[in-house]
């Protein structure tokens, strides 16, 4: 069960009217390594992972939804007042034709989100290694978006989200260490 706090995890401020950035940010919304994929991946894997790391997957999976909400806010702010002409000029003509100003779970290239982006192998090490890889890929995606954005306020929020990927990767790596330790201990029984 979840409690909802009616505020963002970190403030989102957009200074420039630049709908093109929204096109790139959608990668973190409905892309393979986006926040939706991350949240669903972790919250689904936690049922079949050893007890000691279930809580970690719950916590991080929940935080990913908070990130998803921040990304959604950014995309919405960048596009909500754009005219059809501006959407077209920003490369969002196809998106406008399909969704008007609505958000949709697709990646920057327009492919709809698919469950095949995520995996639950049932093997704890395989699953945690996938999670580590997902965090590093999300970190890289944030870097590439920051490299293309010159909106200082938006970049401020993106830098916060990028740092969270670093911390999450660290925690998943520690989870692997915990499971390695448990395995060693059993050999002495």
């Amino acid at each position: 069960m979840w409690y909802y706090e009616k505020k963002l995890q970190y403030p989102v401020k957009v200074t420039e009217c630049n709908p093109r950035l929204a096109k790139y940010l959608i990668e973190q919304y409905g892309g393979a390594d986006g926040e939706l994929s991350a949240a669903l991946r972790y919250l689904n894997q936690r049922y079949s992972i050893p007890d000691k790391v279930i809580g970690l997957l719950t916590d991080i999976g929940t935080e990913e939804f908070a990130h998803l909400e921040m990304i959604a806010t950014m995309i919405y702010k960048l596009t909500k007042d754009a005219t059809p002409e501006q959407m077209k000029a920003a490369g969002l003509g196809a998106h406008y034709a399909n969704h008007d100003h609505a958000l949709y779970y697709n990646n920057a290239a327009g492919s709809a989100w698919t469950a095949t982006y995520i995996q639950a192998k049932g093997d704890p090490i395989a699953d945690l290694y996938e999670d580590i890889a997902a965090e590093e890929k999300a970190r890289a995606t944030y870097q590439w978006i920051i490299n293309m954005s010159d909106d200082p306020c938006l970049n401020d929020s993106l830098k916060f989200l990028r740092e969270r990927e670093v911390v999450h990767s660290q925690r998943f790596r520690e989870a692997v260490e915990i499971l390695k330790f448990e395995k060693d201990r059993k050999q002495f029984f």
Binding site: Y10, Y142, Q143, I146, K159, F160, E163, R164, V166
Partner: peptide, 16 residues
């Protein structure tokens, strides 16, 4: 820490 996204300098990685 709330601004930077981590409580620990050891994990803080500014970008760029």
């Amino acid at each position: 820490a709330l601004y930077k996204g981590t409580l620990w300098p050891a994990l803080y990685d500014p970008y760029p």
